[in-house]
């Protein structure tokens, strides 16, 4: 008698969300199964990795990842084009970190100009991120949203302190919106409710339940994400059915393991390989917990994760 593997099926389904414009638009979500369980139901799209690009040179990045972009990182448009044309990026995440009051305090209008230049330089979808300064982000992201009007771009992150302004800007300019809460599944649901109560279409939301690096609380973020996915699928909770984001690179490339020299810690092995592995392992963990979209930095780490995605997405016969 042939063996029939048991299948778990769910009543809920993740919303399909399309980012970008024209033939370079990319769709994430749409699955009604746990990650990579294609053999149990529908999983029409694969997780997407966006390359992180910044509006100012990445002076605070460790050498391993700074080195990879040294010829282009002085100009955000050239940097984005390099990721698209030479590294095959499916999406670009432009972080407007230079607008942070402690990082240069670049005015909103100037940040909007950068957004325009990057949009001209690439055809792949753009994810526009503020500097994570709740107050400054309201000014910056409103201007940035106007600059990206009608491009199908994603903007964020809307948080409890500033969601009204940012969600309104996303709505007015027909953009997708990232809603971020800090590592609390109930607050994550609450923020999605509040944003949809403003009239924002829940099918244009991306949930960011917050991220963390391997060995720096990954197990917490992992389990929050996993529980959101389970509530979305098993309990058919529509508020939790937007696709999820893991913003990996920013957390990974500031931990000791990606920066400590081999001379100081020879037992940790070669620094560059260690940092790349750290980012790839962190990112692939979040794929298993249910992320549909990743933001990453190092090309080799991205290549490893994309290989992982493609191998896990193969048809099982």
């Amino acid at each position: 008698m042939p063996f029939t593997p048991p299948k778990e099926s769910f009543s809920g389904k993740i919303f399909e969300l399309s980012m970008g414009r024209g033939d370079k638009a990319v769709t994430i979500g749409g699955e009604n199964v746990m990650p990579f369980h294609r053999f149990e139901g529908m999983s029409p799209s694969k997780p997407v990795v966006a390359f992180e690009v910044q509006d100012v040179p990445p002076e605070d990045w460790p050498d391993t990842v700074k080195e990879a972009f040294k010829d282009v990182s002085g100009d955000p448009a050239a940097w984005a084009a390099y990721c698209q044309d030479s590294l095959g990026a499916e999406a670009i995440a432009l972080r407007l970190v230079g607008t942070h009051p402690d990082r240069g305090d670049i005015p909103a209008e100037q940040a909007a100009e950068t957004v325009k230049k990057v949009l001209e330089a690439v055809k792949v979808p753009l994810i526009i991120l503020g500097s994570n300064h709740a107050e400054k982000d309201t000014a910056v992201l409103v201007k940035a949203a106007e600059a990206a009007k009608g491009t199908g771009s994603v903007i964020g992150k809307a948080q409890e302190a500033n969601y009204k302004t940012i969600a309104a800007a996303a709505m007015a300019n027909d953009l997708k919106l990232i809603a971020m809460s800090e590592l609390d599944i109930n607050l994550s649901k609450q923020l999605n409710i509040l944003i949809t109560q403003m009239g924002f279409d829940k099918e244009k939301l991306i949930t960011d339940p917050m991220c963390s690096a391997l060995s720096y609380g990954l197990e917490y973020t992992y389990s929050v994400m996993e529980r959101i996915k389970q509530a979305a699928l098993a309990q058919n909770d529509a508020v939790l059915q937007p696709p999820m984001l893991a913003d990996v690179g920013v957390y990974v490339w500031k931990v000791k393991e990606t920066q400590a020299a081999e001379a100081d810690l020879p037992e940790w092995g070669e620094l560059a390989a260690r940092g790349i592995a750290w980012e790839a392992v962190t990112a692939s963990s979040f794929l298993i917990s249910g992320a549909d979209l990743l933001i990453m930095r190092h090309p080799d780490a991205v290549a490893a994760v994309r290989k992982y995605i493609s191998e896990f997405s193969m048809e099982v016969r």
Binding site: I185, N186, L187, K189, Q190, I193, L194, Q197, R227, A231, Q235, D237, V239, L240
Partner: peptide, 12 residues
């Protein structure tokens, strides 16, 4: 535990 708690759960 059939629904995940959020402050606005009554409004959903």
């Amino acid at each position: 535990g059939e629904t995940l708690y959020a402050h606005s759960y009554l409004e959903m």
